[in-house]
Each structure stands twice: as structure tokens, then as C-alpha cells.
Computed example of a mutant assay.
Amino acid sequence: MNTKLLNNRLIFLGLMACLLLSLVLIYFIFKPEAQKHQNDLNQQNQTLSENNHTKNIIGGNHQAKIPTLAPSLQGTEIDCPIQVDAKGKLVLTVGIRSCFDYFFSSLGEKTETELISDIRQYLKATLPDTASSYASYLLDQYVAYTHALKNLKATSDFKTGDAEGFQKVLNQMYKVQEQFFNSAEINALFGNERNLNQFNIDQMRIHANKTLNAQQKASELATLIDKLPSTLADGVRVSMQFAELQQLTQEIQEKGGSAQELRNMRESLLGVDAADRLEKVDQEEAGWQTQVNSYLSAREQILKSNASDSNKQQSIDQLRNSTFATKEDLLRAQSYEIIHDQ
């Protein structure tokens, strides 16, 4: 196989693995509250299975038991927040894919064929006929889609931070999705993933824009976060704001930026109140650092004295206790001592 072609394929497969992992995390973080009842029902189903009950599963129309889970999943809550409407029809939500991925996470303990059978059994046991039939169809399409992804060859090379290269690879993946699902199914199964991918691409473009200073980047990133769908915004906002704060702070410090530049960036990214809180933390940290540096200097003088080791230790203990008022500060000071001595 051509070396470049092989590298492209490896890069693409690596990206796909990262995307799938990130979406699994999204499922756990952003499952809608409206699906809480279904999660409770799934827990009941798992308990019935573990106790070897043979009665009908609540919510299903069949005399069928849920499948025996792979060892790594036994004792866990079955993550299948699947919804049906009043007429027993399947409601398209990301919970369908979450359910499939939950079972497939044990691939290796069971074969793909066994897991497909398990999912079908679970769908049949817990859903009305109409919903179960449609969900099984989506399962077939999903399996075919994942197989097609594995055989897909990336059309371009790209490096970390290469927004355009990343976009080209994603466009390839989106075309494959369109081969197996209609627009409503794509929005339900892959909507969160697509939104997050687009966010990441826009984020790359902002950071790569050399005409923007740190404050301008912070302002554009804050706007970008605010435009995220409600299903993603709250959870992503916290993690992304922290990551961007770290990156932009480092950028300002490396360029020798002023305290006012740092303040402006924080306000643009997080708002005035958060910037005030961070400024207060900075002041407290600066005060602490002054205090601990003074303590370490006095401690060093004791260690250099001609006193006996026991007297030195006694003097250091007295110094530490008189310098730091709380138990937490005493413990923190001792940590600084270890770092200083090393």
C-alpha cells in the first residue's frame, strides 16, 4: 500500500476514534432530563436480569428478558434512554446511538454479532413493536456506517490546528452518514457531534488568526460558546472557558503582556464578575507567595545555623506555627518546604 495513503488512513482512523470517544463523554454529560424516567426504567430492567426474573420487562410488549451483559457491563445502569411517543412510535434522539454504543463498548468480550443480537433482544424486550422495528433498522444502518468509516481513506493530510484539513476529513465522514441515514436521523444521532466538531473548527480558526490580540480572541471565543445549542452549551462552556483561559493567559505572559491586558482578556471571555473573582484570587495568591517566601527564607537561616538538629527542628516548627494560622495553610507550607528542599 502507498505509504502516504496508509498514513492518511491511520490519521483518519485516529480522528474517528477521538470523535467517538468525545461523543460518548457527551452522552454521559448531556443526557436530557426528559429521559430520566427511561433511565430509571432501565435500572429496573437491569435489576430484574441480575435477579434472574423471568417476568415480562416493564414497558415492553414481549415475553422476553433483557440480554446477559458482558462482564464489564454487569452491575452498571443500561445506558439506553430511548423514547417512544403516545402512539408507541420511536422518537429520534441521541439516546438511540447512546444505547448502541453502550453495548458495543464491550466489543472484545463479546463478538459484534453477539452484541447486535443482544441489542435486538433488548429493543424487543423494552419497546413496542413499531418502535422496536425502527430501532432495529437504525441498528443495521449504524453498524453498516461504522464499517464504512473503517474503510474510508482520508483525502488530505492535516496537522493539529489545521482547520481546513480537519474540515475536509469531517466532510468525508458526513457524506458517509448521508448514505445510511436521512436528515432527521442524522440530526438525532450525530447532531451533537457535528455541532461540537464545528465549534472546534471555528475555535482553531480564531486561534490561528494572527490579526487578533488575546482580548479579541477571547471575545470571539465567548461569542462562539454562546452560539452553541442548549444541549451542549452549559457543559462545554465550563470546560472550554477554562481551557481558553489557560491558553490565552499563557499567550499574554509569553509576550510580556500587562496586567491590564490580562484583565481585558478575562472580561471578554468570562465577564466582569468572573474577572473580578480571578483578580482577587491573583491578589490572594500573590500575598500567599510573599508570605511563604519570607517563611522559607527564615527557615533557611535556621537550617544554616550552628544549632543542633533537634533545636533547628523545634525552631522551624515554632516559626511555621507562628507564620501560618490555619491547618490548611500549615499543610500547604509543608508542601512548599518539600518542593524548596528538592
Score class of each variant (00 low, 15 high):
V176H: 03
A333M: 01
L41C: 02
T111W: 09
K89A: 14
Y134D: 08
E178A: 15
T54R: 15
W288F: 04
A154R: 05
D317E: 10
T76R: 13
T93N: 00
D101F: 04
I316S: 03
S117V: 04
N151Q: 14
Q246D: 05
N151I: 01
L330R: 06
I26D: 10
L21R: 15
E300V: 00
G191A: 09
I116H: 06
D79H: 05
D276L: 14
E337Q: 13
Q179S: 12
G14D: 08
F180K: 11
N45Y: 08
N61C: 02
G108V: 01
Q241G: 08
R120I: 00
M173R: 15
L212Y: 12
S268C: 08
E244N: 13
A17M: 08
K168H: 09
T211R: 06
E33S: 11
K89V: 00
F30R: 14
M204N: 07
L245N: 12
L127N: 09
Q246G: 06
G256L: 08
I82Y: 00
C80A: 08
L331C: 02
L224I: 04
K280A: 13
K304P: 00
G59I: 01
D79M: 12
N61T: 06
I66P: 07
M240T: 10
I338T: 08
A214I: 02
F190Q: 09
V24K: 14
G235H: 13
T111P: 03
G60H: 12
Q253C: 01
K110V: 00
L15T: 03
R266D: 05
T93E: 03
H207C: 01
A17W: 12
R194P: 01
G235R: 11
L228R: 13
E279T: 10
A333Q: 07
S268P: 00
L123N: 00
S310R: 14
L212C: 05
G75S: 05
D202A: 14
T54I: 12
F104M: 12
A17N: 12
T93Y: 00
Q44N: 11
L23K: 14
D140A: 01
K55L: 14
R205M: 11
E109M: 02
L69D: 10
Y145R: 07
V91P: 05
V143E: 10
M265R: 05
S230D: 15
T223M: 09
L278P: 00
R9L: 00
I316G: 02
K159Q: 14
F158Y: 15
N52K: 13
T211H: 01
M173F: 14
L41D: 03
N45I: 06
Q253S: 07
M265I: 04
N61E: 15
K150W: 10
K217R: 10
E279Q: 10
L139F: 01
S156L: 04
E251S: 15
V292P: 01
C99H: 01
Q203W: 15
H53G: 05
L21P: 00
D40Q: 10
K280Q: 07
I339E: 04
Y122W: 06
S230E: 15
F100D: 06
E279A: 13
N2F: 04
S230F: 13
E164S: 13
V272F: 13
E254V: 02
Y142C: 06
R205S: 07
W288A: 04
T231W: 08
L196V: 04
L69S: 08
K4M: 09
L296C: 02
T155A: 12
M173P: 02
